[in-house]
Design a protein around this nucleic acid. Structure first.
Ligand SMILES: [Mg+2]
Length: 717
DNA sequence: CTATGTAAACAAC
DNA sequence: GTTGTTTACATAG
């Protein structure tokens, strides 16, 4: 295939580039920055509207983006631009080392720069190193001045060529040998949409996450045995060896093992759709439900019906006609449906349950493991799945929910204990507190004009509101409040999805809903030069960079990071009620002199909330509290036995503990309406720049703030 | 569309 | 290994 690629280089580049442009531009837009460094001179994919993002991988957000850089940075020269040996410039050497370190998986390795550490035996490196001259000579374009060992084509072009050259116009990452693709089940599939070879595949380019094969394969151990068997059978019957295919990816190590696991949910949409994540139909940690069998019985015959996985997935072998679109298979267990239980444990969502747990705590806060425990203690379903293995799933879900919902706020525990406190965000919106925005900007549909227009419209309004709010905020800076007030306000302003895409056109600026980088105290973070170059005029709040000046701040981080608070264990260094908000350097861990602030404390600083009994309670020493168990929690809701009690086990709580959220409303309203004062620590607060596209307004705001020093600010907007 | 559940990658600890 | 954050993708309404 690679030879083929090279052969087709000259011809294919022109024809393929057109249909690929959207894809690449998308990647460019989101920080991949690939285009900026494409080697091909006549790269039609280059988007001139966008400036190249810094290629320093240490300049990027440490989490995920770096992984993507290597594959996209086809040219070794990129590395030359950064003196990686200078740790000071890029933060911790560890960080840099990690970025430049061995590929985490085969997929990355496969696309890795040839001079990198690609461990892919069949990847470009091999071919190139064997006959670079051949490749070059076959390349009609500038054979003598080829930019790469293999010619002038960039990786992107090569990939494009490869994909377009395939009969189905699709390839798996590991598919480097021959067409048609070997049926490896879900490895092939595009998500839900039935793949249409005539269409450009949906681009799920994610600058923060490399494409992993195994991301599309659920773990075998997570699947009900019957499904495993089914899949085994199916795969076997397809006449193609999964293992061999996987093996081709090389370097996959554990990933390869995972990928090789012929796991899956049969031919059914859910499991077989190539989803990296699961679905709520037959969760792995529900696999012991008796309904699995029912599901299997219901889905396998109708959806799988003897097809190979690949076929059932809409992939034909040998370029034949596409099979009819597969059915959607419903997975919800029938008994669950009969009981009208959204979930096997009842009606309450995770977030609801978490909230109850937190509310049940004397001081309204729990640590993660305590939340776990609460689940186990109070809900039979989870109690029955308390084993390490079984609990992994729902614990993951808990964590996920905690992080995802602004409704939950994390209070960093600076004490010896690492685990943070989790509390209800007192200012969470009463109604729905939307989950954090998903990153959809990297999809084609998300960047449509209509979308942008809509976004723009929404943002305009927000800008106006924001200006007004800021005016009121800064008009009274003398009282007591807590960072949560501010951050929540920000959240209220910006937690809308419509804010997404605002930075679509800002290179290297990926709208992120959250990031640990938004916590200035996080010393492990590296200051990307991108910050200096791109964010220079974005000016972060003074308190943000004060103690950690090198910490890069992505404005957007502050937007959604409404649930992140930091507490000072001693409460003795200037914070309000011992609370310090994201502005101190990470202290040496010591046992807190005083317990971390409870929910009450968090609330009390902004005024009592009579509606919430919790707030009237005396502050309880939090060192050893026990969450309030739920009366009747164990009730008869077990094994789905009771339908009438579905969800009822929770109902006793709200009656005794009126919603904290109601208090949150009051608090929030108070904050906004009365310009509730800010803690002294925040006097210098500058509202962080937010992903609003109207940078003019932002600039104005910034100017105002900087001129006024955060006080006596008014906006003429 | 949104809300939710599930899986998983990753990073930090 | 645990804690947190994100992303992806699935279903349901
Ligand atoms: Mg949260």
């Amino acid at each position: 295939m690679l030879e083929m690629l090279v052969d087709q280089t000259a011809d294919a580049s022109s024809s393929a580039s057109t249909s690929t442009s959207s894809v690449v531009s998308s990647s460019n837009r989101f920080g991949g920055g690939a285009d900026a460094f494409l080697n091909t001179p006549d790269d039609v994919m280059m988007n001139d509207d966008l400036e190249p993002i810094p290629r320093d991988r240490c300049n990027t957000w440490p989490m995920r983006r770096p992984q993507l850089e290597p594959p996209l940075n086809g040219s070794p020269m990129i590395h030359d631009q950064i003196p990686e040996e200078d740790p000071d410039l890029f933060g911790s050497s560890e960080q840099c080392g990690r970025l430049g370190g061995p590929s985490t998986n085969g997929s990355t390795a496969m696309l890795h720069s040839p001079d990198g550490n690609s461990s892919h035996p069949n990847a470009f490196g091999n071919e190139m190193s064997e006959s670079p001259d051949d490749a070059a000579s076959q390349n009609s374009k500038k054979a003598t001045t080829r930019r790469n060992a293999w010619g002038n084509m960039s990786y992107a072009e090569l990939i494009t060529t490869a994909i377009m050259a395939s009969p189905e116009k699709r390839l798996t990452l590991a598919q480097d040998d021959d067409f048609p693709p070997e049926p490896r089940g879900r490895c092939y599939t595009w998500p839900m949409n039935q793949f249409d070879p005539n269409l450009i595949p949906p681009h799920h380019y994610n600058p923060y996450q490399p494409i992993h094969h195994h991301q599309q394969l659920p773990h075998m151990h997570n699947l009900p045995q019957p499904l495993l068997n089914l899949n085994m059978t199916t795969l076997t019957s397809s006449g193609s060896s999964v293992a061999s295919s996987i093996g081709g990816t090389g370097g996959g190590g554990a990933n390869a093992t995972t990928q090789g696991s012929p796991s899956g949910g049969g031919g059914c949409n859910q499991q077989a759709s190539g989803s990296g994540g699961g679905s709520n139909g037959s969760p792995s940690h529900h696999q012991h439900e008796q309904t699995v069998g029912q599901m299997l019985a219901a889905t396998v015959p109708s959806c799988s019906s003897g097809m190979t996985l690949g076929m059932s997935l809409g992939m034909s072998q040998g370029g034949g006609p596409m099979p009819p679109k597969k059915k959607r298979c419903r997975k919800k267990p029938t008994d669950q449906l009969a009981q009208k239980k959204p979930n096997p444990w009842g009606e309450e969502s995770y977030s609801d349950i978490i909230a109850k747990a937190l509310e049940s705590s004397p001081d309204g806060r729990l640590k993660l493991n305590e939340i776990y425990q609460w689940f186990s203690d109070n809900i039979p379903y989870f109690r029955e799945r308390s084993s390490q293995e079984e609990a992994a799933g729902w614990k993951n879900s808990i964590r996920h929910n905690l992080s995802l919902h602004s409704r939950f706020m994390r209070i960093q525990n600076e004490g010896a204990g690492k685990s943070s406190w989790w509390v209800i965000n007192p200012e969470a919106k009463p109604g729905r507190n939307p989950r954090r925005t998903r990153e959809r900007s990297n999809t084609i549909e998300a960047t449509t004009k209509a979308q942008l227009e809509k976004t723009r419209r929404g943002a305009k309004k927000r800008i106006k509101d924001r200006a007004a709010l800021m005016g009121s905020l800064h008009s009274g800076l003398n009282g007591n409040s807590v960072a949560g007030s501010i951050t929540s306000i920000q959240n209220d302003l910006y937690d809308d999805d419509s804010m997404q895409g605002q930075f679509d056109n800002i290179p290297g600026f990926r709208p992120r809903t959250q990031s640990t980088m938004s916590v200035p105290g996080n010393s492990s973070r590296v200051s990307p030069s991108i910050g200096a170059e791109i964010y220079d005029d974005l000016e972060f709040p003074s308190w943000v960079g004060e103690t950690t000046p090198t910490v890069p701040q992505i404005p957007n981080d502050l937007v959604d990071r409404t649930d992140q608070m930091r507490i000072d264990g001693g409460g003795a260094n200037g914070g309000v009620n011992g609370i310090q908000i994201k502005q101190e350097p990470k202290p040496i861990k010591t046992e807190p002199i005083a317990p971390p602030p409870s929910y009450h404390e968090l609330n009390s600083v902004r005024g009592p909330c009579a509606q919430n009994p919790l707030l009237r309670n005396p502050i309880v020493p939090s060192t050893n509290f026990k969450p309030m168990p739920l009366p009747g929690a164990y009730g008869n809701y077990q094994n789905g036995g009771s339908t009438t009690n579905a969800g009822g086990w929770l109902n006793s709580v709200p009656t005794t503990l009126p919603g904290i959220q109601s208090c949150g409303i009051v608090a929030a309203q108070h904050t906004v309406a009365s310009s509730s004062a800010l803690p002294i620590d925040l006097e210098n607060l500058t509202l962080p720049d937010q992903p609003l596209m109207d940078m003019d307004v932002d600039a104005l705001i910034r100017h105002e703030l900087s001129q006024a020093g955060g006080q006596h600010i008014h906006f003429d907007l």
